[in-house]
Design a protein around this nucleic acid. Sequence first.
DNA 1: GGGAATTGACTCTTGGGTAATTTACCGTAG
DNA 2: CTACGGTAAATTACCCAAGAGTCAATTCCC
Lengths: 212, 212
Amino acid sequence: MTSTSNAGRAGTKGVPREERERQILDIATVEFGSRGYAYASLSGIAATAGVSKPLIYTYFGSRDGLHAACVHRAGTRLVEAVAAAQRVPGVANRALATLSAIFHALDGDTENWKLIYDSTLPPESDAHAVARTYQNALNTMGSEGVAAALAATTTDPTDHSLLLALWFNTITTTITWWTTHPTETPESMTTRSRRFLTALQQSPPPSPPDID
Amino acid sequence: MTSTSNAGRAGTKGVPREERERQILDIATVEFGSRGYAYASLSGIAATAGVSKPLIYTYFGSRDGLHAACVHRAGTRLVEAVAAAQRVPGVANRALATLSAIFHALDGDTENWKLIYDSTLPPESDAHAVARTYQNALNTMGSEGVAAALAATTTDPTDHSLLLALWFNTITTTITWWTTHPTETPESMTTRSRRFLTALQQSPPPSPPDID
DNA sequence: GGGAATTGACTCTTGGGTAATTTACCGTAG
DNA sequence: CTACGGTAAATTACCCAAGAGTCAATTCCC
C-alpha cells in the first residue's frame, strides 16, 4: 500500500487532470448549488473535495472560474434536456413535457437547476452574467409558450415579461420544494405538476381562486 | 453655522436617539432589502447613513440586531396590511384584495417585502429565523385560501405545502419585477394581477396552457 | 459636571489569491 | 533494464482585503 500513498505531503498522486477536474466540479456543484454562490467558500470546497486550494486555482483560475465551469456544465445539460422537450408535438402538452424533462434531467440532483437560478448571485456580477446566459437560453424556449398562453387574454406587452418571470420562478420554487421532499421521484413530481396545471383550468366558475 | 457643526470629530450632534434610530433603520432597510442580507455591509450602511459604526452598535447591538429591527418594522406593517385585506368578504376576491393591499402598503418601496422574503438569507441562521416569523404569520393567513383553492381538485396533503410555496413565491417574483419597472403604481400592479388571475380561469379549453 | 451622543483607531477572523517547493510519473539515452 | 531529467500533480505557508465587533476618548446639551 505504501507504493502510491502520498497523503499530506506535496507531490502528484497520479490522478490525471481531467479526472480531478471532474471530482472538483462534482463537489463544487453541490456546494454552490445548495449553499448558494454567496456562501460557498473555496476553502470549503477544497476541503470537501480532499484537495488543496492552489490545485483548484491552477485548474480553474479563480473562484469565479470554478463557478463558471459548474454553471456551464449544468446549463448545457439542462438546455439540452429542455430543447428535446420542445420537440414534443401538441401545444397543450409542452408545458408538462418541459417540466417532466427537467425533473428527469435533474433526477434528485436539484443543485444543477439551483446553480443557474441561484438567488444569492450578486445582481451585477460576472458570475450572474454567466448564469444569465443559460437563463436566457431557457427563457427563449419558454418565451414562445408564454406568448401563446397570453395571446388570448391580454394585449399589454409588459404582461409578457412578468408572466415569463413567473413561469420560471414557479419551476425554481417547485424544484426547491423538491429538495425538502427528497422521497419524491421525477415521476411523482411530474404527476403532481400535471395535477396543478389541470387544476388551473378546471377550478370552479367563481372567477379568481381563493389563493391568499 | 459653526454653532452646531461637529463634522468628523466625536461628540454629540444633538440628534436624539429615537430619531437617529429611525434614520439608520431607513437606510438599513434599503440596503438589506436591495442588496440582500448576504451583501449588505454594516460599514456601508453606516457610511450611507452618515454615521459611524460604533453608533450603530450601541443602538442595535450587532449586525443581526440591526437586521432584526428592520425586519420587525417591515413585517409588522405588512402583516397588518394583509390582515386587513383578509376581512374582505367574498372568497373569490380575497386573493386580489390581498395583492392590492400589499402593493399599496409597499407603494414602490419594495425593499420591505424583499427584506422578509430575502433569498440571500442563510437557511439555518438566526436572521432567517426572524424573517421566518413574519413569513409564517403571512403564511397562516394565506394557508386558508390555498386550502380552499385546492379542496376541489386534489386530496394529496403535500400538494398544499407546494401550492403555498408557489403562491408566496409568485408574490415575491411579482414584487421583484416591480422593482425593475418603477413606473408601475400600486393601481397598475393590481390591474395587472387581476388580468392574470382571471386569465387563469378563462384560458381556452385545450387543457394545460402552453407555458413552456 | 454628569450623562447622552458620537467617533477614530484599533483587533480578530474569514476567505480569496499567490510563491515557492516537493513528489511522482514517464520517455529516452546509455 | 537501469539512470536521469523534464514535466505534471500537489502541497505548505504565506500575503492581503474586507468586514464584524470593541475600547477609550471626545464633544456637546442640560
